[in-house]
Structures are given as C-alpha cells and as structure tokens.
C-alpha cells in the first residue's frame, strides 16, 4: 500500500509525514516522531498505556489509525508536561507515590489531566470511572485515585 502525506497537529506543532494508510497512531508516535513517553502495553486496547488525547479526549493510540487523527489535535504525555517542572496531576503523582514501575503512568497522567480539564472537581467515583480504561499492576490504584483527587483540590 502506498504512503500518503499526512498532516497532523501533535502537541501544538504541525507535523507533515509520509505514512502508509495502515499505520497505527501509536507506532507513528513512537517510531517516527520519537515520542516514546506513550507506552505500548498490549496493542489490543486493553491496558490504556498508550492513551493520548485526540481533541482533548483520552484515546487509545494502539487502536487508532494515524490517518484518522488528521484534523484532530493530538496531545501526548510530552504535550501535557510543561517545559519546566510538572503539571498538578504529575506533581501529585510524585508526592503521593502513585507511580511505581511507571509504565502505565503516562496513560494515567494523560487521562487524569484530561479529566480535570473537563471536571475540575470530580468525585471519587468519577475519578475511578475515568481511569477504568487504564490498568496498573503495581499500586492497586489506591494512590493513583488519591493523587488525582489531590490535584483537583490544588489551588
């Protein structure tokens, strides 16, 4: 299959790249754009490690064709991180010990950041529901939920 020119917006920057139609967004981000903060955990849409924002909404990049992202701004973990320091969700994850092995963490951060943008003061239930597409095997989610709630209360 022949490649075609793809015009994307990634983390606020325009990207033009030649890309075969079957290319998966996760592969494009990791392999072509070197945005390796987005993780590959299952390739089947079950673990949430590859979560990115498409139009500000959490999306599984391993189930998304790169071409379908045309016209929809993409934000990766690199895009939710400020140039210096950490965003409030990231800060809370560090302080609350919500990251252990860290492999699922970018997905949770992206999901949690998007949640707080849309619902600045979610309930515990809303946080649990928002992250229910992300698996974590280290923390039992306890400190992840705590951290997102704490970030929502940050001034």
């Amino acid at each position: 299959m022949s490649s075609k020119l793809l015009r994307l917006e990634v983390n606020g920057h325009p990207v033009e790249i030649s890309c075969p139609p079957e290319r998966i967004l996760l592969d494009l981000l990791r392999e072509e754009l070197n945005l390796t903060g987005t993780k590959r955990g299952c390739d089947l849409g079950t673990c949430g490690c590859c979560t990115v924002l498409l139009d500000g909404r959490p999306t599984l990049s391993c189930l998304t064709l790169a071409h379908l992202a045309e016209g929809h701004p993409i934000t990766t973990i690199e895009g939710v991180s400020p140039p210096q320091g950490l965003n409030p969700v990231q800060q809370a994850f560090v302080e609350h010990g919500a990251t252990q092995c860290g492999f699922c963490t970018p997905g949770f951060i992206v999901t949690g950041t998007a949640l707080l943008r849309e619902h600045p003061h979610p309930t515990r239930d809303e946080v649990e529901r928002a992250v229910s597409g992300n698996l974590c095997r280290c923390t039992g989610y306890t400190k992840i939920i705590e951290a997102i709630l704490a970030a929502s209360e940050a001034p």
């Binding site: 991180s81 969700v89 994850f93 560090v94 963490t105 970018p106 951060i109």
Partner: peptide
C-alpha cells in the same frame, strides 16, 4: 517520594 518519579510522570 520516589527519586525517579518526575521522569516517570513525564514519560
């Protein structure tokens, strides 16, 4: 807090 935490939360 874990010393590598800032690296992990930013990818």
């Amino acid at each position: 807090p874990y010393i590598e935490g800032p690296l992990k939360v930013t990818g």
